[in-house]
Every structure is written in structure tokens, then in C-alpha cells.
Design a protein around this nucleic acid. Structure first.
Length: 289
DNA sequence: CTCCAGGTCCAGA
DNA sequence: TCTGGACATGGA
């Protein structure tokens, strides 16, 4: 039986699908044919962009278009944010280069679990591990003919029952214990992910209760799943970039960087971080090739 | 072979 | 409070 196939097209100003899906905030999208294929909760999705028109296709029998619009932040006018960035040559350059870069609004558990797996790993590896994890433990999704099979990201209940050695077989190394323990904390109801009504500080404290979650991963989840604009994740790339661009390569602790960013980039630190991160990483990629 | 990757945790000063 | 090393794995 041929799966039902639904689609919607949006005309959007300044939306760069490629940069958005390939800027290290999500690990579930893959370049396929002339577009991108990925999963949002229980929806298999293909997204294609032609100039300012983006089309989403899904094999889900009754698609939740609201969820899809929220995930992609369709209704956000990005200029309302970039126009309020500080006057800053580095940030301006990044915005000019990637004017349609967006932040997504991902599912909290998938985002948390993925970033627990991200520590000290390259993005390409994280993608591989997340894919293996989904294929091994997630529910299979309906996929149109001609596309490879696809699975939902496994929920916390499911992963809490996986053994550490089964998780390690997927190549996640020492992160297996963190993932399993974090899944158990949720499955037992010890920590929950209803953070949207908390303040940034409260939400961050709550997230850092999960094993394997420190300030950086907490900020990633706060930004990529909840949209807290106070969040400014500082990884090795951002640390180098901030020291070089704003501290003339002088010694500065993570805390110094964090304080500078909070003050300098407010009120949209989160978005500023994403532009700087993507621009820095793209520059490096270009130099390598 | 060596180095490094969207870090966190723990021990020792 | 601050810093160094351990922790796994795979690609460059």
C-alpha cells in the first residue's frame, strides 16, 4: 500500500534551510537528492528549498503542521532579531554571510539526549551515533518508496531499559552511562523537562542535575529546544573564536567569556552565538578544502 | 602515529 | 574556587 503523502509550501523571507539544518544544532537531517530528509517526533519529513519557497513533505497520515511550523520557526521574522544585534563587525559579517540562518525549536528529550552524546565528539560522529540509536531503539516510521528506512528518536522510558553495554555497542563510549542514567531520571519522574515556565537560571540548574550535563550542554538544550535567548553555549570552537575576536588571544576563562557574551550580545545572545558558531565553523571547513 | 572533537566529572592544591 | 587528567571512539 502506497503511504499517504502530504505536503505544504511556505514563501519565506530570509530562510536558509541548508545552513539551519547543517549548523550543529540538530543531528537528524541528511542531504538527500535535492533536499533534506529528517525526523520530527513521529514525522518522517523531506524538506526542499527553491529560492524563497520551502516545501515540507511527510508520509505521516495526519501531519501535525503546527508542530512542524514551530520546529522550523516559520512564523518568526528573523530581522526582528538581527536588527537588534549590537554594532559588532564580527557578528555583522556572520549575519551578512548567512542571513537566513535560524534556530529550530526541537523536542526537549531528543535534544538533551543528543547533546549528552555530543561531548568531545565531532558533529559527523554525533550524527552517526544518533542515527544508530534511533535505528536500534526507535519506532520505525512510514517512509515513501525510494527512501531509506527511518525511525523515531527513542523516548526516555525506552532508553532507561537499555543496558550500558548495548548502548556502548553503538559507539558512544563513556557517554553511554550518562545517557542511560539521564533516561532513568526521567523515566522515574525524578527530573522533568517542563522548563518553559521557569526562568533561564532555574531551568539551567534543573538541566544540570542530569548526569553528563554541565553548563555547555544545558545551554544547548535551553537554546535549541526552548529558545531561551540568555543561553550562549561555549564549546571549543566558540572558546577559540571569542578569545581571538574579543580578547586579542589573551587569557580568558570560560566564565570571563560567558560574562562578556551575556553583556555584549543581549538580548539575543542565543541567536548571536549561532551566527558566530556557524560562521567560524564554515570558515574552518573552507580552509580545509 | 598523533591530534582533536558542540564536555563533564573528580581529585588535589 | 581553579586546574589537570580520565573518559571512548573515529576521522584527518
Amino acid at each position: 500500500m502506497q503511504p499517504v503523502f502530504n505536503q505544504k509550501t511556505y514563501a519565506l523571507c530570509q530562510y536558509d534551510l541548508e545552513s539551519t539544518l547543517d549548523s550543529g544544532q540538530t543531528f537528524r537531517w541528511h542531504r538527500r537528492a535535492d533536499g533534506w530528509v529528517g525526523v520530527i517526533e513521529d514525522h518522517w519529513i523531506r524538506a526542499t528549498q527553491k529560492e524563497n519557497r520551502i516545501t515540507f513533505q511527510t508520509s505521516h497520515p495526519s501531519p501535525d503542521w503546527d508542530r512542524i511550523e514551530t520546529y522550523f520557526q516559520i512564523k518568526l521574522d528573523i530581522r526582528s532579531i538581527t536588527s537588534r544585534f549590537p554594532s559588532d563587525p564580527h557578528l555583522k559579517k556572520a549575519v551578512k554571510r548567512f542571513p537566513g540562518l535560524r534556530l529550530l525549536r526541537q523536542s526537549p528529550w531528543e535534544c538533551l539526549a543528543s547533546f549528552i552524546l555530543s561531548s568531545s565528539k565531532q558533529i559527523v560522529h554525533i550524527k552517526q551515533i544518533v542515527e544508530r540509536l534511533s535505528n536500534t531503539f526507535g519506532k520505525p516510521l512510514i517512509v515513501p518508496e525510494g527512501f531509506e528506512s527511518s525511525h523515531q528518536f527513542p523516548d526516555a522510558e525506552c532508553l532507561s531499559q537499555a543496558s550500558e553495554s548495548d548502548l556502548r555497542k553503538l559507539g558512544m563510549g563513556y557517554r553511554a552511562a550518562y545517557l542511560r542514567a539521564s533516561a532513568q531520571r526521567i523515566a522515574r519522574g525524578e527530573i522533568d523537562l517542563e522548563l518553559s515556565k521557569l526562568s533561564y537560571c532555574q531551568a539551567k540548574k534543573s538541566l544540570q542535575q542530569f548526569p553528563g550535563v554541565g553548563p555547555k550542554i544545558a545551554d544547548c538544550v535551553l537554546l535549541f529546544a526552548f529558545g531561551f535567548q540568555e543561553a550562549f553555549p561555549i564549546d571549543v570552537w566558540m572558546r577559540r573564536a571569542l578569545r581571538e575576536l574579543y580578547f586579542s588571544n589573551q587569557h580568558a576563562s570560560i566564565d570571563d567569556l560567558q560574562k562578556m557574551a551575556a553583556d555584549h550580545f543581549k538580548p539575543f545572545c542565543g541567536y548571536a552565538q549561532q551566527y558566530l558558531f556557524h560562521a567560524t565553523r564554515s570558515r574552518k571547513k573552507k580552509n580545509l578544502s
